[in-house]
């Protein structure tokens, strides 16, 4: 590092933070603006597309907590996404068919209320993440990637082979679940609701990142031994992050099921785990708004390139290669400058 760079840092950092904040604000306003303009123009499909971006960004935000801040490459986050989706699907299925989920040891009935579904999805996501995390976090590096993938695949095959809730064919939700005071079947109202959830989640993650817990999490990414030297057990910090991450991604899954009014094992497939990773790489791993930038870019390209060629993924692959080789900070790193990864 040259002397000029070092001395430039004090003011430079402040300037860069502002630039990052401008990029973040532009992303947030871009999403809201796109959805609202599309609605004003009567383009329902585009409103739905924007809703999809918001939901996938929530799922990506969950992954970003463990990957971007904690440095854990989880290749099995589809598990929590799918479990959230199935929570919504199964609860709605029982409510719409007037059959209880189970009667023993207490009566548990289905529901079509989104808040109840969200809480259920998050609890299930958190429990699954606690179990999977407790086992996977004993490993590091490539073994961690493989073991999270293996757990994801286990749940995927379980969903395929369990006939009660549609098995391979998936489970339809005939009427989108409701939220008090809103008509969720109106695309723009549902879009607004998902955006509100997205910004609440990003706000929570920003708060966590600046707390002692978040600092310890980032320190664990950089060096576990140094963290132990100040009296903090890295495993505990990482597990808590993993559990919160699972809950957030499951919440996104519940919303996604409601968006499509359909749940299928494809929500649990490793392709989806891969997509979530791609969002973060595209957006800029460890940046708060990376999942939104990444999901937005991905869905836009899928839509535009997909219109040009069936083999759009080839061209997308080239772009991804370019980002990995030449713009390692992703879109946000490119636009905002500075460095977030230690």
């Amino acid at each position: 590092m040259s002397a000029a760079e070092v001395t430039a840092v004090p003011e430079g950092r402040g300037g860069r933070m502002n630039r990052a904040q401008i990029v973040n604000a532009a992303l947030a306003l871009g999403l809201l603006g796109f959805g609202l303009v599309a609605w004003a123009m009567g383009e329902t499909f585009l409103v739905t597309l924007a809703t999809k971006v918001a939901i996938l960004a929530i799922a990506g935000a969950g992954l970003n907590l463990v990957l971007g801040f904690g440095g854990l490459v989880s290749f099995g986050h589809a598990a929590y996404f799918g479990l959230g989706g199935y929570s919504a699907g199964i609860l709605a299925h029982h409510a719409l068919n007037y059959t209880p989920m189970f009667e023993w040891p207490f009566l548990f009935e289905g529901t079509t209320s989104m808040p109840v579904i969200w809480i259920t999805a998050m609890v299930i996501g958190a429990l699954a993440a606690a179990l999977i995390g407790a086992l996977s976090l004993r490993t590091t590096g490539v073994y961690f990637i493989m073991i999270t993938l293996a757990f994801g695949q286990m749940i995927f095959y379980f969903a395929i082979s369990w006939p009660a809730y549609g098995g391979e064919d998936g489970l339809p939700i005939y009427v989108r679940n409701g939220f008090p005071g809103l008509n969720t079947l109106d695309p723009v109202q549902f879009f607004g609701l998902t955006c509100a959830v997205l910004f609440a989640v990003l706000g929570l993650i920003a708060m966590l990142a600046h707390s002692r817990f978040g600092l310890a999490l980032q320190a664990a990414r950089q060096n576990r031994q140094r963290l132990m030297a100040v009296g903090i057990r890295p495993g505990g910090v990482l597990l808590v992050a993993f559990v919160i991450s699972g809950a957030i991604t499951a919440l996104a899954g519940a919303l996604y099921a409601d968006l499509n009014r359909f749940v299928s094992p494809s929500m649990l497939s490793w392709h989806l785990s891969g997509e979530l990773l791609v969002f973060l790489i595209l957006g800029g791993t460890g940046r708060l708004f990376a999942p939104l930038a990444g999901a937005g870019l991905y869905i836009t390209l899928e839509h535009l390139l997909g219109g040009v060629s069936d083999h759009w993924q080839f061209f997308f692959g080239l772009l991804l290669l370019g980002v990995v080789l030449f713009a390692r900070g992703g879109v946000i790193g490119f636009l905002a400058g500075g460095k977030r990864h230690g």
Binding site: L215, Q218, A219, R221, Q222, L227, R340, H341, G342
Partner: peptide, 12 residues
């Protein structure tokens, strides 16, 4: 902790 600021290092 290289990636954290001075203040964050101390806070952690």
């Amino acid at each position: 902790f290289a990636g954290l600021t001075v203040r964050e290092n101390l806070m952690a």
